[in-house]
Simulated scan of single mutants.
Amino acid sequence: MSEFGELLRGWRDRLSPVDAGFTATNGRRAPGLRREELAQLAGLSVDYVLRLEQGRARNPSAQVVGALARTLQLSRTERDQLYRSAGLLPPRDGTISTHIPASIQRLAVRLGDVPIGVFTADWTLVWWNAMWCSLNGDPSALPAEQRNLALALFGNNGPALPPMETERGLDVFEASIVADLKDAVSRYPADGQLDRLVQHLRAESKAFAHHWVTEFAARHTSEQKTFHHPDVGEILLDCDVLLAPGADLRMVTYTAATGTTDAGKLDLLRVTCAQTTGAGNHVLPGPRGTRAIDAGR
């Protein structure tokens, strides 16, 4: 077994299935996550995870290592150790991190009955739960580089947002996203991917270019959004953006007041979600969701 495989196996055994979003049962023999559970959450095939653990697959990509580090809820130091054991350089300082601390993942798992998405500083979606899929569509259907809110808002050929209306209006919503990207550029000047995103959108979108040169900076506040959902119709939800300053992450949540019609519609989505996934609190983390791949081929 290689060093990478030993680390993978040890950290898999350490992680509680409950903290990963699974229901613990008395019949479990594995002390932590089962191999198939790790594979599902990281978006890899079970065979590929087995070969990684046994040392038969020796060149995992940075994307695969990042997905495994997030799924295993590693600390930043442990994440860097996993990268080095794979012969890769850890993510550089001065660039946007996709690392999600274990505490943030545990919090999100325990709030699994509401739609939750976790975004990086450039508004790239890196973690979501099953309820997020029920409300917004399944992000795993998109390539990882296209799971970006700014691309959805301003790109001509990128992903589309679900049909919805915002309480303060689309223009204010757009301005707030651009203000966040401007702030990210000032704090992460070495991030080439962020620079390419901004240059692409400035060239492609007149609205983005206008907001970019406007001094007005719209700040995120709690607001209501109306979704036009294909299954439950119009649903009005409170949208909150919770910041994790130390990790520079944004956790977006959608809730409805108890006893309202909208809460009933959210309950209906929850039931549909449970029937589809087999567990209403099952987590679908980025970057590849539940779409299993064999990255070794």
Rank of each mutant, 00 (worst) to 15 (best):
R12G: 09
C239L: 12
D93W: 14
R58S: 12
W123I: 05
R14D: 14
I100A: 02
H211N: 08
Y254H: 14
A24Q: 10
F173G: 00
I235F: 04
R58E: 10
V213I: 14
L38F: 02
T95W: 04
L142W: 07
L89Y: 10
P245V: 01
E145V: 12
N281S: 05
D238Q: 12
G32K: 02
Q54F: 13
R110V: 06
A102C: 06
L284N: 04
P245M: 07
L181D: 00
D138H: 01
R291N: 15
R79E: 05
V178W: 00
S75V: 04
R29C: 00
E165P: 03
P189K: 08
L201Q: 05
T166D: 07
E215V: 03
G5M: 10
A274H: 10
T23S: 14
R14S: 14
R56A: 07
L89A: 13
A42E: 04
D191F: 05
T277H: 04
F22G: 01
L194P: 11
R106T: 03
K206L: 13
P159H: 05
R168P: 06
E215L: 10
L194E: 03
T25L: 06
M1I: 12
A207F: 08
A150C: 01
G117S: 10
S186P: 11
K182T: 08
E53N: 09
L237F: 00
D240Q: 14
A67H: 02
A121R: 00
S45L: 05
I293N: 03
A69F: 03
A141R: 13
P17Q: 05
D248G: 07
E37Q: 11
E36F: 04
A108I: 06
D122V: 01
W123F: 12
R76K: 15
M1K: 14
K225H: 00
S134Y: 07
H200K: 14
N156V: 11
C239W: 00
L151A: 07
N156W: 10
A20W: 03
L142H: 06
H282W: 13
T98D: 12
E167T: 05
E37M: 11
F216G: 11
